[in-house]
Simulated scan of single mutants.
Amino acid sequence: MDEKYSVLVVDDEPHGFDVIEAHLYREGYELHYAASGMEALSSIDSFEPDVILLDVMMPQMDGIEVCRLIKSDTYWKHIPIIMVTALSSKEDLARSLDAGADDFLTKPVSGIELRARVRSMLRIKQQYDALEATLRLREDLSNMIVHDLRNPLTSILMSGSLLMDSGLKGKDLERVELILSSGRQLNSMINDLLILAKMQSGKMILNLAEVELSDLATKALSQFSGVAASKKLRLRSQLKKLDHPVSVDANLLYRVLDNLLSNAIKFSPPDSTITLEVDDPSDLVTDETASHQATIRVADEGIGVSEELQQRIFDKYEVGSPINSVPQFGLGLAFCKMVVEAHKGRIFVEENKPNGSIFTVVL
Rank of each mutant, 00 (worst) to 15 (best):
L168R: 08
H147C: 08
Y33D: 05
I64N: 00
S321V: 10
I303T: 07
S272I: 02
P269L: 07
K71I: 03
D50E: 11
D279I: 08
F17H: 09
G304Y: 04
A133S: 14
E351C: 05
I156N: 00
M338G: 00
K219M: 11
N191G: 13
K266S: 06
L193A: 10
L216N: 02
K198T: 02
M204Y: 15
G332H: 03
A229H: 13
E307Q: 09
N352R: 04
I52Q: 02
L194A: 02
L261C: 10
A220H: 12
P270Y: 00
G160H: 03
F314K: 05
A229L: 14
W76A: 02
E177S: 09
S272C: 08
E174M: 06
S222W: 03
L157M: 06
L53N: 04
P108T: 12
V340L: 12
L122N: 10
V227K: 14
T286L: 05
C336K: 05
C336P: 08
S357G: 05
L141F: 07
L253N: 05
V305H: 04
L178H: 08
F17C: 02
L196S: 07
L363F: 10
E350V: 11
Q238W: 00
Q311R: 12
A130E: 14
I323D: 00
A334N: 12
V10N: 04
K231V: 06
G100I: 08
Y75E: 11
Q293G: 14
G202E: 01
N352C: 04
R184W: 03
V319P: 05
T295I: 13
E113V: 15
S161R: 08
S88H: 12
R175K: 09
G111H: 12
L173N: 08
T134Q: 15
D92H: 13
L149A: 09
E307L: 09
M58C: 07
